[in-house]
Design a protein around this nucleic acid. Structure first.
Length: 560
RNA sequence: UGGGGCAUGGUGCAAUGGCAGCACAUCGGACUUUGAAUCCGCUGAUCUUGGUUCGACUCCAAGUGCCCCGGCCA
């Protein structure tokens, strides 16, 4: 309208604005997104992605993709490919700037040598247990390692021999010589290198010493000319160390800025815990539609644009927060409502026979894809016949108060077809409902009565003779608890996994759905949004995932 | 007195010394060939106590609460 919705400001943008005012980076903004390839990206990473890529884009800058692959025992190529696909899906692009911390192992090694030469790093031979003991506690200072005053030449020699593979894993480390009495534990002579005789997914067996995150990250930023290095709050305590390495090395000094990571209700964001759900079979892999991973959301039918809109809506700050998943769901529904063609599908079927409808007769109704905005889409032909499927919940033998659907003696509308009135209920010997008999009013073809009479209820239907069958998967939250990680003593998140979070149904669909395409979402009228599963769907077997249900006010009132 | 960080409706985010606002959620109503959507309306917040000021969410002081840090993980 008059003004393009101004990008909301936040504390990070204010810091960048200040840098631009003072000329700290000559007006340059260059960020990086630094995933560790040890798991799939989740919605929390989407927040980082939107911050890293979004801010750079707004300031006319660039963003590098850089894998933080400094720990070969945890990382794998399987993840690097999945990560790239997810970033592209979200709509971000790093051009040709795909980097790896492992690209910098050689320069990093040189930098370590420099620090040794300046007397700022030493080879330590304390065992892991001893090191912990020497580190002190949160309230008591640590004490210096007996190896701390080793001569520079000896450090140089030992470190070269560490690289050469002369020592076993864990026998030695290279440590920064800072301050064992620092109140910041990260400054108590942090380990820079450890010995790991492990095969790295990119460098193979070229190295047997690997830099720690703290020694690799800042210098990688510096090497790439990154100006603003955004990360989550827990790295705030690491910033003095980030700054220390850069200052001692005297190299280009980016600014680290920390923000609060995203937490969502009813799910977990810890990669370690998500991996347990995968490895212990609670879910069907990292892309199981119940997972908070981006590839799961894609598979489930969440639009990438909805995820970006969501991240934009929640904002960025430094206070720990828990966003209600309902907000994400609202935005997904909002976008899908505008883009999804309407179709009819019956998921929990009940047979209806129109006793006064001619045996063997079939007629076709032309129904718009977007009934409330017919110009927005096309139409499709929907067959109608004497026998129909309706939703089990759309009939009640004894209707509760304010029930608008079908019940004995009541007239309602079959959407876009006819008014029908229930005349009989057919049951088996045990009293189970088999089918219901209705009469239709031929005068109400198309769904309105020439005499102007109204009906309160409108239900959807599928012609039994023409219906196609499909598997339909309905999802619920993985955890019923709002905060599944906030548990009483002795319970784990696994104890609270919602085993009813996947429901598999066999539904009857209107025949046009045979033309459904993977990647397209449909609204199954009065139920929700559905998309074809990109893994289980076969030409001879359609499998639909329910992306998200429609808001169901009736269910709320009814359960009330 | 270890260090660092954060406190605004139920949730998330604004207001940068000048009328505390937006979104979601909740609740009520209108409309409806989707009990959806749409529309209208209600409820509801500045952690506490002092101070500065004509005026404080904002500045100052003290306190309280929550989060992070003792991996050769990131």
């Amino acid at each position: 309208m008059t003004e393009e919705t101004t990008t909301k400001t936040n504390f990070i943008r204010e810091i960048i604005d200040e840098h631009n005012r003072t000329g700290r980076f000559d007006g340059r903004v260059h960020t990086r997104f630094p995933p560790e390839p040890n798991g799939y990206l989740h919605i929390g990473h989407a927040k980082a992605l939107c911050i890293d890529f979004g801010i750079a884009e707004d300031y006319g800058g660039l963003t590098n993709l850089r894998y933080d692959d400094t720990n070969p025992v945890k990382e794998d190529v399987e993840y690097v490919d999945a990560i790239k696909e997810d970033i592209h899906w979200l709509g971000f692009d790093w051009g040709d700037r795909e980097y790896y911390a492992s690209d910098y192992f050689e320069p990093l090694y040189e930098m370590a040598l420099q620090l040794i030469e300046k007397g700022l790093a030493y080879v330590d031979e304390l065992s892991p247990d001893e090191m912990r003991e020497y580190r002190g506690t949160l309230t008591e200072p640590g004490k210096n390692s007996p190896w701390r005053e080793r001569p520079i030449e000896e450090n140089l020699d030992m470190f070269r021999r560490m690289r050469a593979g002369e020592f076993p894993d864990g026998s030695k480390t290279l440590r920064a010589k800072i301050d064992m009495a620092s109140p910041n534990m990260n400054m108590r002579d942090p380990v820079m290198y450890r010995i790991l005789h492990a095969t790295h997914h990119r460098t193979g067996d070229e190295w047997c010493i690997y830099p720690m995150y703290d020694f690799a990250h800042g210098q990688s930023d510096s090497l790439e000319g990154i100006t603003h290095s955004m990360c989550s709050l827990e790295y705030e305590n690491h910033r003095p160390l980030y700054d220390w390495f850069l200052d001692q090395l005297g190299i280009f000094h980016p600014q680290q800025i920390e923000f609060a990571r995203l937490n969502l209700t009813h799910t977990i964001m810890s990669k370690r815990k998500l991996r347990r759900l995968v490895e212990e079979g609670f879910v069907d892999g990292w892309t199981d539609p119940r997972m908070p991973t981006l590839s799961a959301m894609r598979r489930r039918g969440y639009p990438a644009a909805a995820i970006r809109e969501f991240i934009d809506t929640i904002g960025v700050a430094k206070s720990d927060s828990f966003v209600e998943v309902e907000l994400l769901e609202h935005i997904v529904r909002d976008q899908l409502n505008q883009s999804s063609k309407r179709r009819m599908a019956v998921l929990q079927p009940l047979k209806v026979v129109l006793t006064n409808y001619p045996e063997g007769q079939v007629e076709y109704f032309t129904i718009p894809d977007f009934p409330h905005n017919p110009e927005a889409g096309g139409t499709r032909q929907v067959p109608f016949g004497r026998e129909l499927w309706i939703e089990r919940e759309d009939f009640a033998e004894v209707p509760p108060p304010r029930y608008h659907r079908l019940s004995p003696g009541k007239e309602i509308r079959l959407m876009n077809a006819y008014f029908i009135t229930c005349t009989d209920v057919v049951k088996d010997e045990e009293g189970h409902l088999i089918e219901i008999h209705c009469t239709y009013d031929p005068e109400t073809q198309g769904g309105s009565a020439p005499d102007g009479r109204k009906v309160k209820g409108t239900i959807h239907w599928v012609s039994a003779a023409h219906a196609i069958e499909a598997e339909v998967r309905i999802y619920d939250q993985m955890f019923l608890d709002q905060h599944p990680e906030d548990l009483p003593e002795g319970e784990t998140f696994l104890d609270h996994f919602n085993h009813d979070s996947l429901q598999i149904l066999r539904g009857y669909l209107e025949p046009d759905l045979a033309n459904a395409k993977i990647g397209e979402t449909y609204q199954f009228v009065r139920d929700g949004y559905f998309t074809l599963d990109n893994i289980h769907t076969k030409p001879e077997k359609l499998v639909f995932n329910r992306t998200i249900g429609l808001v169901d006010t009736w269910a709320k009132v009814h359960k009330g």
